[in-house]
Amino acid sequence: MDKGSREGLIVTPEASEGVWHGSVHWHGGRIVSISGREVSRAQAEALSATTPWLLPGFVDLHCHGGGGHDVMDGGEAAAHIARTHVRHGTTALLATTMTAPLPEIQAAFAPLGEQIAQRRPGSARWLGVHLEGPYINPERLGAQPDFAQVADLATVRALHAVAPIRVVTLAPEIEHHLALIPALVADGIRVQIGHSNGSYDDGVAALARGAHGFTHLFNAMSGLHHREPGMAGAALAHAQHAELIPDLLHVHPGALRVALRAIPHCYCVTDATSATGMPDGEYRLGRHRVLKCLGAVRLADGTLAGSALTLDQALRNLVVHLGLPLTEGVRRVATIAADYLDLPDRGRLAVGAHADLVVMNRDLQLQAVFAEGEEIELA
């Protein structure tokens, strides 16, 4: 765990075409050197028949659960979730809450501070919290329980003192929310527009006040029409950042292509639920009971309710189904999300970065995962 190295085709920003053939060396949980030579994409493709890919650990900024556990369960739930996702290549992530009465949100926050402060062996690193609810529009709940409320700065700051909030989702059209954005940004919190029935103008106004991006773009927001561009239109016309759920269920591949072309720094999230990594059956998402069947997670009425996606599958979807180059896919599941949180030592294989590595074969199947230098047992 303290010292190690791995040889392969290295996806690294140190190469102009993105790939080296060589070795990554680490000590004390940090990368200390990358040795080898740069290779072209054609050379890398030929070498990949016998040489593994070395990719940076994936970074997920929207994760509700996994392995049968939900962040809203509190207690040791987050520890189980982190162990589930690291076995799929996610080495850093945000604990994402659900809309609920405030006491339930406070109870979910209570154990997170300690788990964020210290990565547990065999687990991914919790980077903080994504407060997805309750500051959303009740007309755009999606799969969120019906406990939406108006945001209150004092409440957000009190929660932030218990466990660091890195991202908060809100609907800017709700009264007082626009005025709140600059204060949240000043507190170091990324404000995202989501679960919103707002207009194009509402979205533009929120971005002008400092909002950073959009939560699961296209889902649970007013859609794009050529005479009413809606919140999705504001994102496509003006955003620098937005989340996408690339499970090929939440967003049509054509719409994924539109977003990737229009928004420079789209990054992928799982919106994973407790059903992730589990067999078909009934699970919990906040206060809701949800059913996992044939890869989808839904409410009883058929509404998509989060996902069963993992970021290794997200990468395969981007590369195999959408045709993105592997180096581009890696940016979308790792580097951009890390940069979004101003974490230059995550989401990339570079000297000084955390030794978070994902080893994959030519078919992008996982072979090994290292989290801060520790090899994770995948079985």
Score class of each variant (00 low, 15 high):
residue 4 G to D: 11
residue 4 G to M: 04
residue 6 R to A: 15
residue 11 V to H: 09
residue 14 E to T: 13
residue 19 V to I: 01
residue 26 W to E: 06
residue 26 W to M: 11
residue 30 R to H: 12
residue 36 G to I: 11
residue 51 T to R: 01
residue 58 F to I: 11
residue 65 G to W: 04
residue 66 G to M: 01
residue 67 G to V: 04
residue 70 D to A: 05
residue 79 A to L: 13
residue 84 T to H: 03
residue 87 R to Q: 13
residue 87 R to P: 04
residue 92 A to I: 09
residue 92 A to F: 03
residue 96 T to D: 14
residue 96 T to V: 08
residue 98 M to N: 06
residue 102 L to F: 12
residue 103 P to E: 11
residue 104 E to R: 13
residue 109 F to N: 04
residue 110 A to E: 12
residue 112 L to H: 07
residue 114 E to T: 13
residue 120 R to N: 07
residue 121 P to R: 03
residue 123 S to H: 03
residue 126 W to F: 07
residue 126 W to H: 04
residue 129 V to K: 04
residue 134 P to E: 13
residue 136 I to V: 08
residue 137 N to Y: 06
residue 148 A to W: 09
residue 150 V to I: 15
residue 155 T to N: 05
residue 158 A to L: 02
residue 173 E to H: 10
residue 175 E to K: 14
residue 175 E to W: 03
residue 179 A to R: 09
residue 182 P to F: 03
residue 186 A to G: 11
residue 187 D to Y: 02
residue 189 I to H: 05
residue 201 D to N: 09
residue 203 G to V: 01
residue 203 G to P: 01
residue 205 A to G: 08
residue 205 A to C: 09
residue 215 T to K: 10
residue 218 F to N: 08
residue 221 M to W: 13
residue 226 H to M: 06
residue 227 R to Q: 13
residue 228 E to P: 05
residue 229 P to F: 01
residue 230 G to T: 12
residue 237 A to V: 03
residue 237 A to C: 10
residue 242 A to Q: 03
residue 244 L to Q: 07
residue 246 P to D: 15
residue 247 D to L: 14
residue 255 A to D: 13
residue 258 V to N: 01
residue 261 R to N: 12
residue 264 P to E: 13
residue 266 C to K: 06
residue 276 T to W: 04
residue 277 G to T: 00
residue 279 P to D: 01
residue 280 D to M: 10
residue 282 E to T: 09
residue 297 V to R: 10
residue 298 R to N: 06
residue 312 D to W: 00
residue 313 Q to L: 07
residue 313 Q to W: 08
residue 314 A to V: 06
residue 315 L to Y: 03
residue 318 L to Q: 07
residue 331 R to A: 13
residue 331 R to Q: 15
residue 340 Y to P: 11
residue 340 Y to A: 14
residue 346 R to W: 06
residue 357 L to C: 00
residue 358 V to D: 13
residue 360 M to G: 02
residue 361 N to E: 00
residue 370 F to M: 15
residue 372 E to I: 08
residue 373 G to I: 10
residue 377 E to T: 12
